[in-house]
Design a protein around this nucleic acid. Structure first.
Length: 100
DNA sequence: ACTTCGGCATAAT
DNA sequence: GATTATGCCGAAG
């Protein structure tokens, strides 16, 4: 895989404004690799804990929180709530999705 | 019109 | 080969 893909992903995730969310698949598409949603998820899972990247604004395509029920998922939900994003159960309404 | 679930496609941090 | 912080689609309740 082109290593620039990773940097493109970081750049795109960093550009998601507070209060908005996107999805792994959408980020992959915007990075120029339409079928690499899983790879984006892998990148997110391996970010250092002190990263400045807003990884919590990246959800599944249907708005569900990845890893809901695990500590990481709970922290993601908490971060979203702190930004004034509504989270119902383990999902975020489409209203918050960044539209292109 | 919901929600689940199973199966398949995808690629390698 | 097995395992994913995915996505899509069809079937069933």
């Amino acid at each position: 895989m082109d290593p620039s893909f990773r940097d493109a992903v970081y750049q795109i995730v960093a550009a998601i404004p507070p209060g908005a969310v996107s999805s792994y698949g959408a980020v992959a598409r915007q990075a120029g690799f339409p079928r690499h949603a899983r790879f984006v998820g892998r990148l997110m899972s391996q970010l250092p804990k002190d990263t400045r990247l807003p990884w919590h604004r990246v959800l599944r395509g249907d708005g569900r929180i990845a890893l809901a029920g695990t500590p990481a998922g709970e922290q993601q939900i908490q971060r979203l709530l702190d930004e004034n994003v509504t989270v119902l159960g383990d999902r975020v309404p489409r209203q918050h999705f960044q539209q292109w």
